[in-house]
Simulated scan of single mutants.
Amino acid sequence: MTRTVLVTGVSGHVGARVAIALAADPEIDRVIGVDTAPPPSPAGEDGAVLGRTEFVRVALRSPDLVKVIRDADVDTVVHLSLVSGPGGGRAGDTGGRPAMKEHNVIGTMQLLAACQRSATVRRVVVRSTTAVYGSSPHAPAVFTEDTMPVEVSHHGYARDATEVETYVRGFARRRPDVTTTTLRFANLMGPGVDSPLTRYFSQPVLPTVLGFDPRLQFVHEDDAVEVLCRTARADHAGVFNVSGDGVLLLSQCARRTGRPVVPMPSPAFRLVSGVARGARLVDFSPEQLSLMSHGRAVDTTRLAAELGWRPKYSTAAAFDDFLRSRGGPGELPRAVVDWLADLLTGR
């Protein structure tokens, strides 16, 4: 039985939701949320954002984390603190790529070392990403958990997640008595999700790579929270892909948004991405740029068989719910709009 849960990354949207959901479970005695800053309070609201979750301000790399785990007799650790880009959307996080890598990789190493030394930890759940498979013209149509990536990313979030999974496998070998679960999530969608992909689809003009129509998969934030809570409450050892059923082509996503599409050669697409990054609209990493060309799809049979559960939202339903939560197209800076107009008219 789960008694005391430690949740990392509670300043993030999903981390906060998971902590709140677990704290509401009467069968769980105590939930401790750790991060370098608490989640931001909704405007006009007072009181504890995390419900009865006990917030502890501590970095993953801090030796104080060992003390938190030991003193609270933590038996379950849910690690949700990996960030997908510099700044990562975490409260108080303004670091660049070096800080991101130190947090993701070194921080996870420190957390796993603390778990390894603990006499009480018996379950560890780690949030990972399907980005570990990469996106390539040589990739299989569908990735299973046992499929090796055709091209391994050497930078960014995908690289960090690959390294993190290596350390998780090492931890599982050293502590076979601890149930270790790795959840590889497709891109999250939902009203509360703020990511490079949700920002891309929120723009009034959608640049695409000429000649490519990638397959995309999404998982709704509600389903992500549900599967994380399920694996925190019961033993489900192994690696699992997590995605809503089905796929959407990028062209289908664009039609659903109602926004105009601007197909452009790959170099021009990368240039536009750079302009958008400079304007702080969309921060596309190299692996995300590859996704927009080659796409990616994963098989979730193992998850359904192990948990006896399927996501409530399909890929299409998750995307539609995200769109319903957005009031209308965002605004591009005038310089970007003029540049796109010149590109379309050939000037």
Results as ranks from 00 to 15, higher is better:
residue 185 F to N: 11
residue 185 F to M: 12
residue 185 F to R: 02
residue 186 A to R: 05
residue 186 A to C: 14
residue 187 N to T: 15
residue 187 N to H: 12
residue 187 N to P: 06
residue 189 M to I: 05
residue 190 G to I: 01
residue 190 G to N: 06
residue 190 G to A: 00
residue 191 P to Q: 08
residue 191 P to I: 01
residue 191 P to C: 01
residue 192 G to T: 12
residue 193 V to N: 03
residue 194 D to C: 10
residue 194 D to Y: 02
residue 195 S to D: 06
residue 196 P to C: 10
residue 196 P to W: 08
residue 196 P to E: 11
residue 197 L to F: 15
residue 198 T to F: 07
residue 199 R to S: 12
residue 199 R to V: 01
residue 199 R to D: 14
residue 199 R to P: 01
residue 200 Y to V: 01
residue 200 Y to E: 04
residue 200 Y to M: 06
residue 203 Q to M: 15
residue 204 P to G: 05
residue 204 P to F: 01
residue 205 V to P: 12
residue 207 P to E: 14
residue 209 V to A: 13
residue 210 L to Y: 09
residue 211 G to M: 06
residue 211 G to Q: 02
residue 211 G to A: 08
residue 212 F to Y: 14
residue 215 R to N: 06
residue 216 L to P: 04
residue 216 L to A: 01
residue 216 L to V: 04
residue 217 Q to R: 08
residue 218 F to M: 01
residue 222 D to K: 04
residue 222 D to P: 05
residue 222 D to G: 00
residue 224 A to P: 04
residue 224 A to V: 03
residue 226 E to Q: 13
residue 227 V to H: 12
residue 227 V to P: 01
residue 228 L to W: 01
residue 230 R to S: 03
residue 230 R to C: 08
residue 230 R to G: 03
residue 231 T to W: 08
residue 231 T to E: 10
residue 232 A to W: 05
residue 233 R to L: 15
residue 234 A to V: 13
residue 234 A to I: 03
residue 235 D to L: 03
residue 236 H to F: 15
residue 236 H to K: 06
residue 237 A to Q: 13
residue 237 A to F: 02
residue 238 G to P: 07
residue 238 G to W: 13
residue 240 F to Y: 15
residue 241 N to Y: 11
residue 242 V to T: 03
residue 243 S to P: 03
residue 244 G to T: 03
residue 244 G to E: 01
residue 244 G to Q: 04
residue 245 D to G: 11
residue 246 G to L: 10
residue 247 V to E: 15
residue 247 V to S: 09
residue 248 L to D: 01
residue 249 L to A: 12
residue 250 L to V: 06
residue 250 L to R: 00
residue 250 L to D: 09
residue 250 L to S: 06
residue 251 S to R: 14
residue 251 S to K: 12
residue 251 S to H: 09
residue 252 Q to A: 14
residue 253 C to I: 03
residue 253 C to Y: 06
residue 253 C to V: 09
residue 253 C to S: 09
residue 253 C to P: 08
residue 254 A to V: 09
residue 255 R to E: 15
residue 256 R to T: 05
residue 257 T to S: 10
residue 257 T to W: 06
residue 258 G to D: 02
residue 258 G to K: 00
residue 258 G to N: 02
residue 258 G to E: 02
residue 259 R to T: 12
residue 259 R to S: 11
residue 260 P to I: 12
residue 260 P to F: 13
residue 260 P to N: 11
residue 261 V to F: 07
residue 262 V to K: 02
residue 262 V to F: 13
residue 263 P to Q: 04
residue 265 P to W: 03
residue 265 P to G: 11
residue 266 S to T: 12
residue 266 S to I: 05
residue 267 P to S: 07
residue 267 P to H: 06
residue 269 F to M: 12
residue 270 R to S: 15
residue 270 R to I: 08
residue 270 R to H: 14
residue 271 L to A: 15
residue 271 L to P: 00
residue 272 V to F: 14
residue 272 V to D: 03
residue 273 S to R: 00
residue 275 V to S: 07
residue 276 A to G: 08
residue 276 A to I: 09
residue 276 A to P: 02
residue 276 A to C: 13
residue 277 R to A: 15
residue 279 A to C: 13
residue 279 A to R: 07
